[in-house]
Design a protein around this nucleic acid. Structure first.
Length: 304
DNA sequence: TCCTCTCCTTGCTT
DNA sequence: AAAGCAAGGAGAG
């Protein structure tokens, strides 16, 4: 099936598919080919350069689903509310073509479990390998869908290691088994306070703060999640004017970037890695989000 | 409770 | 060619 989609705001497909949020897209003659759910798609700008053409095979979810996946309905600039001054940085404006994809939560969990101490090429190899070994075929292509947690739960650790997962293999296996046995409610994770959602995800083996935030941002439509990795740690300390800072402090400081801070995180990642230094921003005088210097008193844990 | 260090795999880079 | 490095996490001390 072939869909013609309209686009609101700037769109940079190259940046969107190479920025490290998704791992099943490859360039193909001015277009991008990838697997989403049980479909494979070829995505390209239309001849006028205004809209988007999506040609899908397999179980095509339909035009609306593709538009939602690519987040075409909103202008990315709406997420800059908390830090409009960043727009004056040279090289910032073109990055606004980056779209945060709305990806499947489980596939996002599995993908980012593969991301520990890895790079994008490595992650892609692992994810593609898992799909080709355990996924269902997709009609019209040699590529396969990403397997369900229940499927991976029955895999053997050696099979995953053979795909190059290394020390990540037991994490993925145990997480798949955990989710197969006790599924998480994606709906709840999307509504819960960010700290709560993050804590829930961190209960999965192999999922720490950084990967939990990536799952929230890329797989659960939580643009208020702000994953702090080595690059963002540096970028945030720079903007906060700090030479050293704990991750908790950086999390707290990042609140000033507003509810779209997760989107900004993506842009900052590129700016800090490819560009020069970042401007210093101070915390907002009247922080929009209440902040506590100390954790609330803990009630004694009730025992079952 | 918090901080720091080390190990865990793999493959590409220096 | 050995060492370093890469969008981390867990366990020890």
């Amino acid at each position: 099936m072939r869909h013609h989609l309209s686009v609101h705001g700037p769109l940079d497909l190259d940046l969107t598919f190479t920025c490290g949020q998704a791992f099943r897209w490859t360039p193909e003659k001015g277009a991008w080919r990838g697997v989403v759910g049980r479909a494979e798609a070829l995505v390209r700008r239309d001849d006028a350069g205004e809209g988007l053409v999506v040609a899908a095979s397999g179980e095509d979810p339909g035009a609306r689903a593709w538009a939602a996946y690519l987040r075409l309905e909103e202008d990315p600039a709406i997420h800059l509310a908390g830090a409009a001054e960043l727009r004056s940085i040279p090289g910032f404006e073109p990055l606004l073509g980056l779209r945060l994809l709305r990806q499947d939560p489980w596939e996002t969990i599995a993908s980012f479990l593969c991301s520990a101490a890895a790079n994008i090429v490595k992650i892609s190899r692992c994810v593609e390998g898992i799909a080709s070994r355990f996924g269902d075929p997709i009609p019209g292509t040699a590529r396969r869908a990403f397997p369900a947690a229940a499927t991976l739960a029955r895999a053997r650790e050696g099979e995953l290691r053979a795909l190059g997962l290394g020390f990540r293999a037991p994490f993925l296996l145990e997480t798949a088994r955990s989710l197969d046995k006790d599924p998480l409610s994606w709906n709840t994770l999307q509504r819960a306070p960010i700290a709560e959602a993050r804590a829930t995800l961190q209960s999965l083996p192999g999922v720490g703060a950084k990967i939990a935030d990536c799952i929230l941002l890329f797989g659960l439509d939580r643009l208020d999640a702000y994953p702090v990795d080595r690059w963002i740690r540096r970028a945030t300390m720079e903007m906060a004017g700090r030479r050293r800072a704990k991750d908790r402090e950086l999390d707290e400081w990042a609140l000033r970037l507003g509810p779209g801070r997760g989107y900004l995180q993506q842009l900052l990642f590129h700016l800090r890695r490819n560009g020069g230094p970042l401007p210093r921003l101070t915390p907002l005088p009247q922080a929009p989000v209440a902040r506590r210097r100390h954790a609330p008193p803990k009630r004694s844990r009730s025992r079952a």
